Structure formats: C-alpha cells, structure tokens
Simulated scan of single mutants.
Amino acid sequence: MALLQNPVKGRYRGVSVEAARKHYDLPDDFFRIWLGPSLAYSAALWQPGDTLEQAQDRKMDYLAEQARIEPGQRVLDVGCGYGTEVKRLLEKEGISEAVGITLSQTGADWLAARKIPGLEVRVENWADHRPVRPYDAIISFEAFEHFARPGMSQRRKIAGYRAFFEQCRSMIAPQGRLVVQTITWGHRFPLERRWLSDLSMAAKNYPECNPAFLSEVVAASDGLFDLVAARNDFADYSRTAAAWVRNLDADWEHSVDLVGLKKTQDFKQTMTAAVRAFASGWFYLHRLTFSPVEQPTKPARHFLVNNVIGRF
C-alpha cells in the first residue's frame, strides 16, 4: 500500500554511509566498555536505585508496551545498532521475525555472527528498504537525529522527515505502531564558549547529525500518523550519559589501547557535555508513539483550519 512511488525522490535520505561508519565502525569491545553488556546505544528509562542494565531493560519493556508487541509479530528496527531492542523482543516478547537495518557494516557483522533466531540484519538505508509484507510494529531508537544535517532549512528538514514517515506508513500494518525515541532540541541554551566547544566536538563525533524540534516531527507526520503518546525524559539521558562516562573511566587504559587516546578523550568530552546539556534541558529526549491514520492525507492547511470556525 505504498503512498508514493518514490517518497524520497528529491528529499534528504539521512546520514551518508561514510559519516555513519566514521562514528560506528569502531571495535565492538570499545562500545561494550562504556555502553555495558547490553550494548544499548540510547538513553535508558530510569527509576531510583537502578543499575544501567536495569534501566535499559525498563526502556525496552516500555517500548514493547507502546508498540503493542505480541507473540508472533514482525518488527522492523530502523537504525538497529547492536540489535539490543529486537533481540529482547525476540527472546522475551516472543515475536516471530525481526529485521534490523543499519549503515554500520561492523555492527551488522557483529549481529550476524550471533546467529539470533528470527533476526535478519541488513546494511541499507531506510529509504531503500522493501519488506516482503507489512510489519506489525516499527521501532527506531535515536536514529532520527541522523535524518537531517546541520545547515538544513526547517522546510527541508520537515520534507526529509516526512519521507521517513511516508516510508514507514507504506510498510506498517493498519493496526501497527511506530515508536520513535529521539534527541530533540530543547529550550534556548547559553551561547558560552565552553558550550559551543562541546557542540563542535559532538558534531565531529556525530557527523551530519542535527536533531529535530518536536514541532518539526509532528508537522512531518501530519496526515500519516496520529501521535498517541509522548513523553520528554531529558533527565534520563543525563543519567545514562553519566553512567557511560563512569564506565569509560573505569576501563580507560583498555579504551585507549583499542581506539587511541584522542578518540577516547573525544568520546568522554562529548558524553560529559551531554550530562550537563540534558540535565539543563538544552536538549530533550522524546519518546513518541504513533498510530497510522486510516486514510493518509496531505498535511493540514493550518490557516484554513484555524479560520473555518469563523465562517459559522
């Protein structure tokens, strides 16, 4: 039930393969040092007294609840990383099939070597994915930040995001759910030298990455999906990043052996900055649940809608 013959034609397809691999194609052991054994490379969902692993499990359980996961379903993970989320859905929730797409050959090779029953991993752009049949749920955890690059106009960002939502709408079953966790821009942050330096370092570590504003995400999904649940857990990202920094410090020498001193220092600076940025609300962390509309339409003409009541 494709909406458009080529929904991405003329619109941004997200981060390039080269930029993605510059960040993600590092030794698996390096990521395991600071992400922990789950290799979950996204913010956890915390409660008091949690360990990082417990908080990551809670995040994945929330994901399953929001996606209305049931045994026997098919699930797509856009930007699957090391497959943490879909692996749990296969093993704990009993889904029958999971497809993970990624631009990282290293991550895909690592996942394929695990030979997880029911899991297929593909190295491809979301815009090129063609499923054999609709998915019961689509999840995407902190890949959305890579769907726009610095310097893009708001209009072009929204057009690129809309291409993603159109693609998802064409791949999902009528009663399916799309669950997105993404970093978004928060309230106005201070233009101080230290903060600008941290942003510059983050841009080097995450090339071609530019978070959305929540309003841009909502505008892009208009007429394709209903936003049925939303929460802003920016403090959870601050706490997750702080745990990552502690892990890195605890095995610093091994990290340096794996990727070198500069790369290790760059990651620590970026994550340390994230602790402050999210705690202060300069960045937000949105967990968004979407339900496909019955009949896709073009975005609402807001001027017309806002003024139609005046005609009565």
Score class of each variant (00 low, 15 high):
Met1Tyr: 00
Leu4Val: 02
Lys9Tyr: 03
Gly14Val: 02
Ser16His: 08
Val17Arg: 15
Glu18Asn: 08
Ala20Glu: 06
Ala20Leu: 06
Arg21Asn: 12
Tyr24Pro: 05
Pro27Lys: 06
Asp29Arg: 13
Asp29Asn: 13
Trp34Glu: 03
Leu45Asn: 02
Trp46Val: 01
Trp46Met: 04
Leu52Ile: 01
Leu52Arg: 01
Asp57Pro: 00
Glu65Cys: 03
Pro71Gln: 09
Pro71His: 07
Gln73Met: 15
Gly81Leu: 11
Gly83Glu: 11
Gly94Ile: 05
Ser96Arg: 14
Thr102Ser: 15
Ser104Glu: 07
Thr106Val: 15
Asp109Ser: 13
Ala112Thr: 13
Ala112Pro: 04
Pro117Cys: 08
Glu120Ala: 14
Val121Thr: 14
Glu124Ile: 12
Ala127Trp: 11
Asp128Glu: 14
Pro131Ile: 05
Tyr135Val: 05
Ile139Ala: 05
Phe141Ser: 14
Glu142Leu: 04
Glu142Trp: 05
Glu142Ser: 13
Ala143Cys: 15
Phe144Gln: 11
Phe144Asn: 03
Phe147Pro: 00
Arg149Leu: 09
Pro150Val: 05
Met152Gln: 14
Ser153Ala: 12
Arg162Phe: 09
Arg162Tyr: 06
Arg162Pro: 11
Gln175Gly: 00
Leu178Phe: 15
Val179Pro: 07
Val180Thr: 02
Gln181Asn: 10
Phe189Pro: 01
Glu192Phe: 00
Trp195Ala: 04
Leu196Asp: 01
Leu199Thr: 03
Met201Cys: 12
Ala202Phe: 12
Ala203Gly: 11
Pro207Ala: 12
Pro211Ser: 10
Pro211Lys: 06
Phe213Asn: 11
Leu214Glu: 10
Ser221Phe: 00
Asp222Phe: 00
Leu224Val: 01
Phe225Leu: 07
Phe225Lys: 09
Val228Asn: 03
Ala229Met: 03
Asp233Thr: 10
Phe234His: 15
Asp236Tyr: 07
Tyr237Ser: 06
Ala242Pro: 02
Arg246Val: 01
Ala250Ser: 15
Asp251Trp: 01
Asp251Ala: 15
Trp252Cys: 10
Ser255Glu: 01
Val256Pro: 08
Val259Asn: 10
Gly260Ala: 11
Leu261Val: 11
Lys263Arg: 15
Gln265Phe: 01
Asp266Thr: 08
Gln269Met: 10
Thr270Trp: 00
Thr270Pro: 00
Ala274Gln: 10
Ala274Ile: 00
Ala277Phe: 06
Ala277Thr: 06
Trp282Asp: 00
Arg287Gln: 12
Leu288Lys: 01
Leu288Ser: 03
Thr289Phe: 01
Phe290Gly: 00
Ser291Gln: 14
Pro292Thr: 06
Pro296Thr: 02
Pro299Ile: 07
Pro299Glu: 09
His302Val: 04
Leu304Lys: 12
Asn307Thr: 15
Val308Met: 14
Ile309Ala: 15
Gly310Tyr: 09
Phe312Tyr: 13
